[in-house]
């Protein structure tokens, strides 16, 4: 079919598919699912750090954290907007999220226990997100790629502020240093899991690579993240909780230990430490706000009738 060949030609030439172009159903569905999960992750991701805005121990940190969590709302918005160019509807996607029919990144189902977690999330979680997301700035679907450019620019500020907070705390009291190490211990392995299951078990990877929705495999991106993080940890003066991390000159990469995939699947399936709480908070905000959204829509409808 001509349209399909034209689609394949555009993708193969590394050009962008735009909203009104013809595209295979599978491509459209895969994109909606992936972008919606990404959007949900941004919105749910506001909670673990948002919890600490009220308790941030300096006014500068409070402002930075509030601005960061606000950025995440913005990222969610950009991404939901990208799904809408594909015919999806934000309200519908939100319903799917709060009914547990669509997922978000499992990382946000881990609890934030101390203020050091804010720094470690910035450094490791946002760092892992950047590894995942920078290639998406060149993804084949135009609106997604453009949203990701904006997201990545802001994420780099997030990672920077996180690392800077940790550097500051590592110059502080022994109690602060211990807090940082403890947070690194808790977040390192979940951060590695953010790249998804190993390539051999990743059912969606191959087709997504052909369509150039994805540009690198899970394992490639995970390796890049480890290689990036090891020298950063050294510089910071913390130990990554994996005795198997070692430079492998032959591969030109760091080796690292085995990931506990049982834990990964347990959290994905909804039995992580905070799954229920995160969804419940989102559901409550959405339902508590319904009368406000209705009021504004009713007001607009009245004004239109008068006009």
């Amino acid at each position: 079919m001509d349209l399909e060949r034209e689609f394949e030609r555009v993708v193969a030439a590394d050009h962008r598919i735009e909203p009104r172009d013809w595209m295979p159903d599978g491509y459209r569905k895969t994109l909606i699912r992936q972008i919606a999960q990404h959007a949900h992750s941004e919105i749910i991701g506001m909670q673990p750090e948002g919890n600490w805005i009220s308790r941030a121990p300096s006014l500068r940190r409070k402002a930075i954290l509030l601005a960061k969590v606000q950025d995440e709302a913005g990222h969610g918005l950009y991404l939901y907007a990208a799904t809408e160019t594909l015919g999806a509807d934000r309200e519908d996607l939100t319903t799917k999220l709060i009914e547990g029919r669509q997922k978000y990144s499992s990382i946000f189902n881990y609890p934030t226990l101390t203020f050091a977690d804010v720094g470690v999330i910035g450094w490791l979680v946002d760092g892992a997100a950047i590894c995942n997301q920078v290639p998406l700035c060149r993804t084949s679907y135009g609106p997604y790629a453009r949203a990701m450019i904006r997201v990545c620019k802001e994420e780099s500020f997030h990672q920077r502020q996180g690392y800077e907070l940790l550097m500051t705390m590592m110059r502080g009291t022994d109690a602060q240093k211990a807090m940082v190490q403890d947070a690194v211990n808790r977040w390192w392995w979940p951060s590695l899991m953010m790249f998804g299951p190993p390539d051999a078990e990743s059912s969606n990877t191959e087709q997504s690579m052909v369509w150039r929705i994805k540009r690198h495999t899970n394992d490639e991106l995970r390796q890049r993240f480890v290689d990036m993080s090891v020298p950063q940890a050294e510089k910071l003066g913390v130990t990554l909780p994996d005795p198997k991390i070692a430079w492998n000159a032959e591969r030109g990469h760091h080796d690292f230990g085995d990931i506990d995939w049982d834990e990964f699947w347990q959290v994905v399936k909804g039995d992580g430490p905070c799954n229920a709480e995160r969804i419940e908070n989102r559901r409550k905000a959405h339902e508590d706000g319904a009368w406000v959204r209705e009021a504004a829509a009713a007001y607009a409808a009245k004004k239109e009738r008068v006009a």
Binding site: I43, M46, Q47, G50, I53, L66, V69, Q70, A73, G74, G76, L77, Y80, N281, R282, K284, A285, D288, G289, A290, V292, R293
Partner: peptide, 12 residues
């Protein structure tokens, strides 16, 4: 109100 506003635009 962070993460609790009636709509994402209002959160921002």
């Amino acid at each position: 109100w962070c993460a609790k506003a009636p709509e994402l635009e209002e959160d921002v």
